[in-house]
Simulated assay, not measured.
Amino acid sequence: MLHSLAEADLRPREARCAQPASDHWRRTATRVGAVSYLNSKPLVHGLSSILPDDRFRLDYPSRLADDLAAGQLDVALIPSVEYLRNPEYSIVSDACVATHGPVLSVKLYSRVPIGDIRSLALDEGSRTSAALTRLMLAERYGVIPRLEQLPLSRSTADSECDAVLLIGDRAIHPPAEEFEAVWDLGEEWVNWTGFPFVFAMWVARPGAADPALSRLLSETRDMGVKSIDQIAAAEAAGLNISERTARDYLRDNLHFRLGSAERKGLELFRELLEPLQLIPGSRSGSAASRS
């Protein structure tokens, strides 16, 4: 059975470990992976100067999830659905990527009315957003489409499917094509359920959680949130967006703390996914501790 998210070890920093987190991590062999998208920059701001180069890397969320499952990483910022699928994983920080409304970087583009979707191309980098899309199509419209994968190097124009899911930095740019309907998945979820949606969180494999881990990741998040202007200035040009767009996205569309409302939203996500068998690796029933 899944543990109660409210029981994750989110104790005050001083209660966990008095040792400076950066010194601790320089001496450990823990392999850490984080998402390369703009939405995760506040969670990793400065980590590359703390963690050894050979123990820290950035990648797409789906690849990080696979590497964590394969034992090639010990701790990773992974899609929330992958945490729900594996009862052995534990949350190791209150830092996360969540939204309380429109998220901007997770979009469903449909060439037909939503209820008429029969084929769906899913962004190769997506796991949580793919499950969320399938959940809302099934629950709200009774739609169970044929699925295809959209490679990371391709765009909506390369797919003939009725609808295409895009996530991450490329989803911030609207496609040139006109669509019958466009969903911002964060906005759709919040309007539907009233809860925030958690896209990713820091998760550890069994035995990889460390007394200093939560403090390091939480402090990194706190510093990153304070540095949003700096992050936006550094990242905007490479993404072909304005600094204002990058800043507003990080400040207004995203939320980086896993609080009680976020944990309730995550529990509801699990409860809705299980009857549809969209998290086949999870254990049904009431929540149980995995912290």
Score class of each variant (00 low, 15 high):
15 A>V: 09
22 S>D: 15
24 H>W: 15
30 T>S: 09
37 Y>Q: 11
40 S>I: 02
41 K>I: 12
42 P>C: 07
43 L>G: 05
45 H>Y: 15
49 S>R: 13
53 D>Y: 03
56 F>Q: 05
56 F>S: 03
65 A>E: 00
73 L>P: 03
74 D>V: 00
80 S>H: 04
82 E>H: 05
83 Y>K: 02
87 P>T: 02
92 V>C: 00
92 V>W: 05
99 T>Y: 06
101 G>C: 08
103 V>K: 00
105 S>E: 13
107 K>I: 03
108 L>S: 00
109 Y>M: 10
115 G>N: 14
119 S>Q: 08
132 L>H: 04
135 L>N: 04
152 L>E: 11
153 S>E: 11
154 R>N: 08
155 S>H: 14
156 T>L: 07
162 D>T: 06
164 V>G: 10
166 L>H: 04
168 G>W: 07
178 E>C: 11
179 F>V: 02
186 G>Q: 05
187 E>M: 13
188 E>R: 15
190 V>A: 09
192 W>H: 10
194 G>C: 13
200 A>V: 11
206 P>M: 08
208 A>K: 10
215 R>S: 12
215 R>D: 13
222 D>Q: 15
224 G>Y: 09
227 S>M: 09
230 Q>S: 13
233 A>Q: 14
236 A>E: 02
246 A>K: 12
248 D>F: 03
249 Y>T: 14
252 D>C: 12
257 R>K: 10
261 A>L: 14
262 E>M: 06
263 R>P: 09
263 R>L: 11
264 K>P: 06
267 E>C: 03
271 E>R: 15
278 L>M: 02
278 L>H: 00
289 S>R: 01
290 R>D: 12
